[in-house]
Simulated assay, not measured.
Amino acid sequence: MSTADAASLKRRYDEVSPKYEQAPNQVAIKLFWLAYEHLTWKPVEALLPKDGTSWRVLDAGGGGGKFGTRFAEAGHHVTVLDISPGMLDGARAQFTAKGLLDRVAFVEGNVAALELPDAAFDLVFCEGDPVSYCMDAYPQAVKELVRVAKPGAPVVLGVDNRHEAFSYYMKSGKHAEAFKLLQDGKTTCPYGLPVHAFTVRELEQAVADAGADLLEIFGKPVMFFDMLNAMAASRGASAAQPWDAWAAREEILAQQEKLAHEGFAVLGQHFQVMARRRA
Results as ranks from 00 to 15, higher is better:
residue 58 L to S: 09
residue 206 A to W: 02
residue 50 K to W: 00
residue 191 Y to N: 14
residue 193 L to I: 01
residue 20 Y to R: 06
residue 74 A to S: 11
residue 39 L to Q: 08
residue 277 R to T: 02
residue 245 A to Q: 14
residue 224 F to E: 10
residue 29 I to W: 08
residue 27 V to I: 13
residue 45 E to Y: 00
residue 13 Y to K: 05
residue 243 W to D: 15
residue 151 P to E: 09
residue 58 L to F: 07
residue 178 A to R: 06
residue 189 C to G: 12
residue 163 H to A: 15
residue 279 A to D: 13
residue 133 Y to C: 09
residue 20 Y to D: 07
residue 144 E to G: 10
residue 6 A to P: 04
residue 85 P to K: 03
residue 54 S to H: 01
residue 43 P to E: 03
residue 58 L to V: 04
residue 118 D to M: 01
residue 259 L to R: 10
residue 211 G to W: 02
residue 236 G to H: 05
residue 121 F to K: 01
residue 96 T to G: 06
residue 96 T to P: 01
residue 189 C to Y: 01
residue 64 G to W: 01
residue 259 L to N: 10
residue 197 A to N: 08
residue 214 L to Q: 06
residue 114 L to R: 05
residue 215 L to K: 12
residue 276 R to Y: 00
residue 212 A to R: 03
residue 182 L to R: 13
residue 218 F to I: 05
residue 246 W to H: 15
residue 159 V to R: 04
residue 152 G to T: 09
residue 179 F to C: 11
residue 261 H to K: 14
residue 146 V to D: 06
residue 7 A to V: 10
residue 203 L to T: 05
residue 66 K to Q: 15
residue 98 K to S: 04
residue 75 G to Y: 01
residue 227 M to A: 14
residue 230 A to S: 12
residue 231 M to F: 13
residue 160 D to K: 12
residue 55 W to I: 01
residue 63 G to S: 08
residue 51 D to V: 00
residue 247 A to E: 14
residue 23 A to C: 07
residue 171 K to A: 15
residue 207 V to Q: 06
residue 261 H to E: 08
residue 73 E to L: 12
residue 42 K to W: 06
residue 125 F to N: 02
residue 197 A to L: 02
residue 251 E to I: 11
residue 137 A to E: 14
residue 39 L to E: 08
residue 229 N to H: 12
residue 230 A to N: 11
residue 156 V to R: 01
residue 54 S to V: 00
residue 270 H to S: 12
residue 24 P to Y: 05
residue 190 P to C: 02
residue 263 G to I: 03
residue 211 G to F: 02
residue 241 Q to W: 11
residue 233 A to D: 12
residue 58 L to Q: 09
residue 45 E to D: 08
residue 4 A to W: 02
residue 48 L to P: 00
residue 247 A to V: 11
residue 138 Y to D: 11
residue 119 A to M: 04
residue 159 V to E: 07
residue 103 R to H: 07
residue 231 M to E: 15
residue 82 D to L: 03
residue 228 L to Y: 04
residue 150 K to A: 07
residue 229 N to C: 12
residue 117 P to K: 04
residue 159 V to T: 10
residue 76 H to Q: 07
residue 50 K to G: 00
residue 234 S to P: 02
residue 10 K to W: 02
residue 270 H to I: 05
residue 58 L to N: 06
residue 241 Q to Y: 13
residue 115 E to Y: 03
residue 256 Q to F: 00
residue 266 V to M: 11
